[in-house]
């Protein structure tokens, strides 16, 4: 056993190193717009940010809690439409529509989750898939609310604290803030009693239940939180593209996000981020293949999986995470 002084020093050192890493990463992210990237590249970066929120949130329910959801696009859609409609009808600003959109998505997830999260595996998968198709079809047919296939054009650009967001650089900083909020919230949830309960359910639901984890309650909680952030991403998307229609929220969108999670590594937050970046860029990088682009995309998915079935970062515990544990330990033996 080490002495208390050594512990405190070690702890301080760890915290210092961690903050340095965070500051470094943040500084790197902040200067991206200063690199005078072209508009197209900036748009890709911003979309990658949107997908990061979607992938990180799906990762919570599918990667960490182990419940396969094939309908994440539904909550993305609900967020986008809630935001668009509130903004168009009532002229509400982004700072109100975004939380409202996220809460709406969470509420719907809660109502869907209570009766359906008892289901497992393929059954849950098809229910989430079916639900997301229902959402899309309703959006396509409820002309009075969503204008159906014509979509909703001219959604107001966000105004944050009296500051109008219009240029790509400004949107970049907005999505960066949202990604950081999402990352921090999910990180804190995962590294807590809640997160341990989620992971325990994934690992062995019966053992988790025997240890006092109310499985249904925690699955619903995880699903609801995941939907909350998907709704947030939807809200951003609506105010960024300023036009939404049901075509943006198909089953393919859910699959796209799921592929990001699986490719990056289920149950890994950095994995979800890397997966989002790769799969947002891949179709663009393959653009030179012209018509053969999507064939190649499919082939890449097929080839990647056997090479690393657990995903790029799956099963890897990051040094940062480990240090947090050591910190626990140090604190624990004080």
């Amino acid at each position: 056993m080490e002495t208390t002084v050594e512990h405190v020093n070690k702890k301080k050192k760890i915290i210092k190193r961690r903050s340095m890493i965070y500051v470094g990463v943040l500084a790197g992210l902040l200067i991206i717009p200063l690199l005078s990237l072209n508009n197209f590249t900036m748009r890709m970066v911003i979309m990658a940010g949107t997908y990061m929120i979607l992938a990180m949130s799906l990762n919570l329910i599918t990667g960490y809690t182990g419940q396969l959801s094939l309908g994440h696009a539904a909550f993305y859609a609900i967020g986008a439409y809630t935001s668009a409609i509130l903004s168009m009808r009532f002229g509400w600003s982004f700072l109100i529509t975004a939380p409202a959109a996220a809460l709406m998505a969470a509420l719907v997830a809660l109502l869907l989750g209570i009766p359906t999260l008892k289901l497992q595996g393929a059954y849950l998968a098809i229910v989430t898939l079916g639900f997301s198709e229902i959402v899309r079809i309703v959006a396509l047919n409820w002309m009075g609310l969503t204008r159906g296939p014509m979509g909703i054009p001219g959604i107001a650009r966000p105004e944050v604290l009296g500051y109008r967001i219009a240029s790509n650089t400004q949107y970049y900083y907005l999505i960066l803030a949202l990604v950081i909020i999402t990352y921090m919230s999910l990180y804190r949830i995962i590294n807590s009693r809640l997160g341990r309960a989620f992971i325990a359910i994934r690992e062995d639901d019966l053992a988790a239940q025997s240890m006092g984890v109310d499985i249904l309650k925690y699955k619903i909680l995880s699903f609801t939180i995941a939907a909350f952030f998907a709704g947030l991403a939807g809200s951003f998307y609506a105010h960024y593209v300023t036009y939404i229609d049901p075509q943006s929220f198909t089953f393919n969108e859910s699959i796209q996000v799921l592929s990001m999670v699986v490719l990056g590594g289920m149950g890994s937050m950095p994995g979800a981020i890397i997966g989002s970046v790769i799969l947002t860029w891949a179709p663009e990088m393959l653009r030179f293949l012209e018509d053969y682009r999507m064939i190649m995309y499919g082939a890449i998915l097929i080839v990647m999986m056997p090479i690393r079935p657990q995903g790029i970062l799956g099963g890897i515990r990051f040094k940062l995470d480990k240090e947090e544990e050591n910190q626990h330990e140090a604190v624990g033996s004080e």
């Binding site: 599918t62 396969l68 699959i255 799921l258 592929s259 699986v262 490719l263 289920m266 053969y292 682009r293 999507m294 064939i295 995309y297 499919g298 082939a299 890449i300 998915l301 097929i302 999986m305 056997p306 079935p309 657990q310 995903g311």
Partner: peptide, 26 residues
Amino acid sequence: PLRRKNAPKVASLISTIGISIFLQNL
């Protein structure tokens, strides 16, 4: 190849999605 590696089910699922995208575009 995924079965041989005892890969998680969801990896196979993504593979079949890859096949689907591949075939459809082909």
